[in-house]
């Protein structure tokens, strides 16, 4: 019994460690950048604002409707953004949105099938906010640092 508990703890520890290593590695490999419409007056964004914007809890900024846009789920940077900024796992986030959907409160942000689609969406809406893998050129969209 004791041995079993210890074994489980050990397994958890190894897994956690490897995940951390992998994340650090991924960040090194694949960071993200937050983009907004070029007319957006924001020069930097707070992590908390981004979180509430992507959970559709903040609905307005600078006189515009906040319009968050996700990358499609196949982009690994999306998971990174979800973890770092929204502070939820993918399952947690899905649960959150299902609750919102079936209680009739709202629907999750649209998903861009590509970085270009995200950029296009951002450029199309003045209140839009999205994110791109760090390596992708944001084009005319403006990148704002996250504090």
């Amino acid at each position: 019994m004791r041995a079993l508990v210890l074994a489980i703890l050990a397994a958890l520890a190894v897994t956690g460690h490897s995940a951390t290593v992998k994340a650090v590695h991924a960040e090194e490999r694949e960071g993200f950048k937050v983009i907004v419409h070029p007319d957006n007056p924001a020069r930097e964004l707070e992590r908390g604002f981004l979180r509430s914007a992507f959970l559709k809890k903040s609905t307005e900024w600078h006189g515009e409707t906040v319009r968050p846009i996700d990358l499609a789920t196949r982009f690994t940077v999306r998971d990174r953004f979800t973890t770092d900024v929204i502070g939820k796992t993918r399952a947690q986030l899905r649960s959150y949105w299902n609750q919102q959907i079936f209680s009739g409160k709202g629907v999750p942000p649209p998903e861009g099938e590509s970085a270009a689609a995200v950029i296009a969406y951002v450029l199309a809406h003045r209140g839009a906010v999205g994110y791109l893998p760090a390596s992708v050129d944001p084009g005319k969209a403006r990148v704002v640092p996250v504090r």
Binding site: D70, A72, W97, N98, I101, V107, P108, P109, P110, E111
Partner: peptide, 11 residues
């Protein structure tokens, strides 16, 4: 299916 894609049905 991604929820985002189901927007009309959800609506």
């Amino acid at each position: 299916a991604a929820a985002a894609t189901l927007a009309p049905q959800i609506e």
